[in-house]
Design a protein around this nucleic acid. Structure first.
Length: 310
DNA sequence: TTCCAGGAAATGG
DNA sequence: CCATTTCATGGA
């Protein structure tokens, strides 16, 4: 189990840039609402020369060169700023936050398909909330850890997995760890995972990692087989109907998928009562039919809207 | 102490 | 096939 530990002596990450945003982006609601658990809010000032009122978020992940890339983002009135160990970090930022998407078009599509106007209200209230586009494997393991616990607790588990088994770098005395690869998690026992307080989810993670590792096809091939991605993922121990939908929406860029959890089920009862009698799986497929190509975004706005009102 | 937090597997009808 | 129970953990 190779653990890469690189010490970088520079005070700063070395590279930085900024982007004007065509559409609003709310980092807090986007990164702290249970879509992704790969970013951490850092209690420190914004980097060089920018306002320090807004929160700053940091992640570490494996760069395409194989090195660990640390990436930090923050906002002020001038736009979205980033600093990183790697000069091409903007590509990663654009991918995660879908900065190249036309959000007016996405919003218009789901508003037009909504029979009762809730989605339009939710978009108004949560302007800047976006569906993230994160890597597949970390997203799968994250949501394997998600049943019956809160967002903060899931985040803790994911950060512990990263610190324990992932590659890391040290910058100015702070260690940043990327989420481990399939290979790095292969062979980790259920007991070791329970020491990280995964509880009964340790069994899910251990068995799923083993299954992926021993499969002849890499996990990423799911992206080119969207038709049977759902049934394939659900063969993994611990991956049920809701987890698989989260993985497809947040970890495979499939905008039309509608995960239905307890909160969405409550929102359906309130705003789409014609689906109340259906199972969650059936309701999910009906909502996808209703909202169309960008139904997953409608789900995210509805999730927040119902949290705020209920 | 009890209840709940972005559920899923195992069991019993 | 559907409904019920059980599964660890931490925080309120």
């Amino acid at each position: 189990m190779p653990l890469v530990m690189t010490t970088v002596t520079t005070e700063r990450f070395g590279c930085e840039g900024c982007m004007d945003l065509d559409e609003p982006l709310d980092l807090v609601s986007t990164l702290e609402s249970g879509q992704t658990f790969l970013w951490s809010r850092e209690d420190q000032e914004m980097f060089s020369g920018h306002a320090k009122s807004a929160p700053v978020f940091t992640t570490a992940r494996v760069h395409k060169s194989g090195e660990v890339m640390v990436l930090r983002v923050g906002q002020d009135d001038d736009g979205l700023f980033w600093e990183s160990t790697h000069s091409d970090a903007e590509e990663y930022v654009r991918e995660v936050f879908r900065l190249n998407e036309n959000y007016q078009q996405i919003h218009q599509a789901i508003i037009e398909n909504d029979p009762n106007g809730v989605i339009e209200e939710a978009i108004e209230e949560f302007r800047g909330l976006r569906v993230v586009n994160e890597p597949l494997f970390p997203t799968l393991i994250s949501f394997l850890c998600s049943p019956q616990i809160g967002v903060e607790h899931i985040h803790e588990m994911v950060q512990k997995l990263s610190a324990q088994y992932g590659d890391s770098v040290v910058i100015a005395g702070h260690e940043y760890s990327a989420f481990p690869s399939v290979h790095q998690l292969t062979g980790v026992t259920e007991d070791e995972l329970k020491e990280l307080k995964l509880g009964y989810r340790a069994e899910y993670v251990a068995e799923t990692v083993t299954a992926i590792d021993s499969s002849s096809l890499p996990l990423e091939t799911l992206h080119s087989n969207p038709a049977d991605a759902r049934s394939h993922l659900q063969e993994y121990h611990g991956v049920g109907p809701k987890v698989v939908d989260c993985v497809l929406l947040y970890g495979d860029g499939r905008d039309s998928i509608v995960p239905v959890d307890t909160r969405i089920a409550q929102a359906v009862e309130e705003y789409y009562p014609e689906y109340t009698e259906l199972s969650r799986e059936e309701a999910a497929r009906e909502l996808e039919d209703l909202f169309g190509e960008y139904a997953g975004h409608a789900q995210l706005y509805l999730y927040h809207y119902w949290q705020a009102t209920g």
